[in-house]
Nucleic acid binder design. Structure first.
Length: 683
DNA sequence: ATGATAACAGTTTTT
DNA sequence: CTGTTATCAT
């Protein structure tokens, strides 16, 4: 008798679940039941094999994926009492560092900073080189385990010598303030394991069965970390799809999945090629496209569903016509009863959303733009977080500078500068400086009026800190009462939205306190720094988003706009045609029932109109001229009311095909006529 | 200290 | 055409 775990699995999936010893690569095509396989495998390990949950480790990239897997795995697990460790790479790093960072002579009350914080630190240090470049270079160094000294030594250009210097100062600043950035969560974890062989053995022994999701997105340091975790065994199972590797530009190494068998000897490979999502016609197009890539392991998706309808191509003169047509299609789908949440429009670059949004607005279609600015990246939320940080750690100079003039207290740049200089001279933090100095002494440093303001500010922070330590629940109200944070944005154009976000944050804080009654502010802070909000609300709106943001999602009706040379594929320095092709592949394989591809002859972009060629991906996907479908093919159906310029209003009594066009039989008040679809408009 | 204007750059984004 | 940042008066 087979265990219940295997009930709904196909042969390849079963094989992947049972193969538990030694390295295993599960090459999971789009829509092939990847999550089901990985969660079943985890359940199998715990329930059937009897591995204690504490001996397994499952790592993902996003909190969303971790959450989904946890929920699905827990449903299958009945016999074990405590849950297995299933989290993001970074969360794992955080947990590890909490226990072991003392091996680097650091205190475990460190604070995790995000990229925005990093930018501010760099900006403070640096003078002339553009900040974004420095941030990404530092990140690259850290992910390649290159120290500032090494970076300096190997830099040839003057600029890079300078970047290496900034990198050094940046690291110094982090150390000084006991801060840890996202890269450190992995890099320091690796460093500790690398320098402490005993601990590496111990940790590897602890996690005897390791699974990694989205392996094609791993980078250099993640691979090295995994190799450390596999010091004493080789039970590593990675799941991924080389054809869906679309994050090369942010350091993901597709070679990790392509060369898995070399990094981990005697690796087995299981291909999941049965696709439960899309119709065969959609898969044919996707398969044909991706076959043009050379760097791939190779697989062909096979639909378990029906043949389906042809992939549709829309050609337009310009972006306004494009969005008008897309909107017309969508209106038609909605009118025929399709749920809005089953419809999505995807694009390669966010800039294309504007004309699309206009078209949707004009047609009265409500949409939800996925992605955009994330909750925790919004200025007002960052202000909130800074307040909390200052309260947990009064010496957090970095955060105190952000809030010292929010709401406005008349403390400007000059005053902050004076404070900072004085705090360095006194070898103390800005907070302590204001706190310990007498009013008179402070007045010698800053203006008289400001000295009093600063004294009050510090006094209030101390008062709120007392409340935080006695009752986390009452704290948040006390904070708002004391500092009127909601007033910061009161007189800005989007005050409503900002205050709503702050209220949302307060709500989240209360939820956290209820869920974790014994936790302190610091736990809340480190938790949310690693979190990104995911809108999962399914509403009355269709979805529009970038192709990157669509990865992992599926829609019954999927539209892709901007299929032109220069947009998809996006061309330019640093562009990689194979990765562009994978983006095309990812976008095509989001579609369940219908896939509609749109391209234009010219587009307005960066302030100028440019003539465009249609994307080479049409030909590569086998969609040549002859297979083009004329737009509006199902725009009209029997019973619809339409208007003709000459005959006026009438009702459709029949639809037939005439060459490429659709011919309508229309009853104009008793007068029956055959009219081509393009000569009438819907009423 | 703060608001107004000029100059400028401009895929994709999670933790 | 946009949004962001640097600089300059007030």
């Amino acid at each position: 008798m087979e265990h219940e775990i295997f009930k709904d699995l196909n042969d390849a999936q079963k094989h992947a679940v049972r193969q538990i010893d030694g390295p295993l690569l599960i090459l999971a095509g789009a829509g092939s039941g990847k999550t089901k396989t990985i969660t079943s495998r985890l359940a199998y390990l715990l329930e059937e094999v009897g591995v204690p949950p504490s001996q397994t480790l499952t790592l993902t990239f996003t909190n969303k994926a971790a959450k989904e897997m946890r929920e699905r795995a827990l449903k299958m697990i009945t016999t074990t009492s405590y849950p297995p460790l299933l989290c993001t790479f970074h969360k794992f790093g955080l947990l590890f560092l909490k226990f072991h960072i003392h091996l680097l002579n650091r205190d475990n009350n460190f604070v995790v900073i995000d990229n925005d914080d990093r930018k501010r630190i760099i900006k403070k240090i640096n003078s002339d080189i553009p900040t974004p470049l420095i941030g990404s270079e530092i990140s690259r160094y850290k992910n390649s385990l290159i120290s500032p000294t090494e970076a300096y030594a190997q830099a040839e250009l003057k600029n890079y010598k300078q970047i290496a210097k900034i990198y050094e100062e940046y690291e110094h600043y982090l150390l000084e303030n006991n801060l840890v950035d996202f890269d450190d969560l992995l890099a320091l974890t690796y460093k500790i394991l690398d320098e402490n062989d005993d601990l590496a053995q111990e940790t590897s022994n602890k996690y005897r069965y390791i699974m990694i999701d989205e392996y094609q997105d791993t980078n250099e340091i993640q691979l090295k970390l995994l190799q450390k975790l596999c010091t004493t065994h080789h039970n590593i199972c990675v799941v991924g799809d080389d054809d869906q590797s679309i994050y090369g530009w942010r350091g993901a190494h597709i070679r990790n999945i392509l060369e898995f068998h070399q990094d981990f000897q005697n690796a087995q490979i299981v291909k999941l090629e049965k696709n439960y999502r899309s119709t065969q016609k959609i898969l044919n197009v996707a398969n044909a496209l991706i076959e043009h890539n050379r760097s791939r392991l190779g697989k062909t998706l096979q639909s378990t569903r029906h043949e389906g309808t042809d992939v549709i191509t829309i050609k337009s003169d310009h972006e306004n016509e494009e969005s008008k047509k897309i909107a017309a299609y969508i209106t038609e789908l909605l009118n025929s009863g399709e749920r809005a949440s089953e419809i999505a429009v995807l694009y390669r670059i966010n800039a294309l959303s504007r004309s699309l949004e206009e078209g949707l607005n004009r047609a009265g279609i409500s949409y939800r733009l996925v992605g955009g600015l994330r909750f925790y990246d919004r200025a007002e939320i960052k202000d909130m977080i800074s307040y909390l940080r200052v309260i947990t750690n009064h010496h957090d100079n970095f955060s105190i500078k952000r809030i010292i003039n929010k709401p406005k207290r008349g403390i400007g740049k000059a005053t902050v500068e004076k404070l900072e200089l004085a705090s360095i001279r006194h070898e103390t933090s800005i907070f302590s400086l204001i706190d310990t100095l007498s009013l008179n002494e402070l007045e010698a440093i800053v203006r008289k009026k400001n000295a009093a303001t600063l004294k009050t500010f510090v006094k209030n922070i101390k008062a709120v800190t007392l409340i935080a330590n006695s009752s986390t629940y009452d704290f948040i109200d006390a904070l708002e009462a004391m500092f009127t944070i909601r007033d910061i944005y009161a007189n800005t154009p989007d005050a409503m939205e900002k205050t709503a976000n702050i209220d949302e944050f307060y709500g989240m804080f209360r939820d956290f306190v209820i869920a974790n009654p014994d936790a302190g502010l610091d736990e809340f802070l480190n938790d949310i720094t690693l979190q990104s909000e995911q809108d999962e609300v399914e509403g009355e709106s269709i979805y529009i988003m970038s192709i990157h943001a669509s990865k992992g999602l599926e829609f019954k009706h999927t539209f892709i706009i901007g299929l032109e040379e220069g947009f998809l594929p996006l061309l330019g320095d640093g562009s990689n045609i194979e990765e562009e092709r994978r983006l095309g592949y990812v976008s095509f394989t989001r579609a369940k029932d219908t896939l509609t591809l749109s391209h234009v002859s010219s587009r307005f972009y960066k302030g100028r109109r440019t003539d465009l060629q249609k994307s080479r991906f049409f030909n590569e996907a086998g969609l040549c001229e002859g297979s083009l479908k004329l737009e509006q093919h199902t725009a009209f159906k029997k019973g619809d009311l339409v208007r003709h310029k000459i005959f006026g209003a009438g009702r459709i009594i029949g639809v037939s095909k005439s060459g490429r066009e659709f011919k309508l039989s229309i009853n104009f008040g008793g007068n029956k006529r055959e009219i081509l679809a393009s000569f009438v408009e819907r009423l």
